[in-house]
């Protein structure tokens, strides 16, 4: 393997990690507030479709992004309605949202564009522009810094940098603000939050909406940044990989970043090589694809450190009378 290949793989790792990172942080915030969300996949999917469709029609990618956030938040609110207001089963609601998105995107796409459930491919201003970081061109030929800065870090869409910025922001929000403290409290012991006169319902809805916004960005990047248009089921399990990363990181923002980068790297490597030879053993591509899920099961099983979810996660809060 030469340097150019490694640079390429790391470069695509950053791009592939971006939707995972948004979705992972989305799930993290929701679950920290006690709302299980296995509907990340569905929200990303509807956002991906909305972003591509609106970007194509309007010719402006940012209008598409805004619409994607809107669509994703709408599904979030359905989840909130089911799991907060009507105290339904949050897991079942998540399953329903995934299918709702999988079905409705194709039905509408087919009806709208008549291209077999996809949007026309995007070009020009309908796609997310790639940014060149300052001095990237000047530094290109400098050893070490050149490939690292110009080759890997520079040349991504704005949302890639936003995603990575979201990691410290989420950390700050959760652990350094009053809102974050309450959000975490509502996921651990909602009765205590209620007793102190803060609305559990409002806090949980807030978490669910933030989750929707982040999933919206994840989906929008997927269809307008990573690829140029929407195709049926284009999230392809990314929502569940994000969920896996969240568990892998034990519901903490910084470890989430490393988990997402690891899973992104696995995807980048699997995309590039069919089979990998390690010490004379051939590792089939399927093993690379399954690795994030296997790692998550191992972590969940508690063989390598225990992953303990927020204590009140998945339970509706019933106010005492």
């Amino acid at each position: 393997m030469d340097i150019a290949v490694i640079v390429q793989i790391l470069d695509s790792t950053l791009r592939l990690s971006t939707p995972l990172l948004f979705a992972c942080l989305a799930g993290l915030i929701s679950e920290r507030a006690g709302i299980f969300d296995i509907g990340l996949e569905g929200k990303m999917l509807i956002a991906a479709f909305t972003a591509a469709a609106i970007a194509f029609v309007s010719g402006n990618v940012w209008i598409g992004v805004a619409a994607a956030i809107f669509a994703s938040v709408a599904l979030s609110l359905v989840h909130g309605l089911a799991s907060i207001t009507f105290r339904g089963n949050q897991l079942i609601s998540g399953v329903a949202i995934n299918f709702l998105a999988a079905g409705i995107t194709v039905v509408i796409a087919q009806n709208w564009f008549r291209q077999g459930g996809r949007t026309p491919s995007l070009s020009g201003d309908a796609r997310m522009p790639r940014l060149t970081l300052p001095f990237a061109d000047a530094l290109r030929d400098v050893p070490v810094i050149g490939p690292l800065y110009s080759g890997i870090l520079s040349g991504h869409a704005l949302l890639v940098y936003v995603a990575f910025l979201c990691v410290p922001l989420t950390w700050y929000m959760l652990f350094r603000t009053r809102f974050g403290l309450r959000l975490r409290a509502v996921g651990e012991n909602p009765a205590a939050v209620d007793t102190s006169g803060v609305s559990v319902t409002t806090l949980r809805y807030a978490a669910v909406v933030i989750c929707g916004v982040l999933c919206g960005l994840a989906g929008a990047y997927l269809s307008t940044g990573l690829s140029a248009g929407f195709v049926k089921d284009m999230t392809a399990g990314r929502g569940f990989i994000a969920l896996a990363a969240m568990i892998f990181a034990k519901w903490r923002p910084w470890p989430a970043l490393w988990a997402v980068l690891l899973f992104g790297l696995l995807e980048a490597v699997a995309n590039r090589f069919q089979n990998i030879e390690i010490l004379g053993l051939t590792l089939p591509v399927q093993a690379m694809q399954a690795l994030p899920y296997i790692l998550t099961v191992v972590i969940l099983a508690g063989f390598v450190g225990k992953a303990i979810p927020p204590r009140a996660g998945g339970q509706a809060y019933v106010k005492e009378h």
């Binding site: 089911a82 329903a96 999988a102």
Partner: peptide, 17 residues
């Protein structure tokens, strides 16, 4: 895929809502 939508709505209404 309309069926997937119906399936989702059935799960939503009978299960979550």
């Amino acid at each position: 895929e309309l069926i997937v939508v119906i399936q989702a709505l059935v799960i939503l209404f009978t299960g979550a809502l």
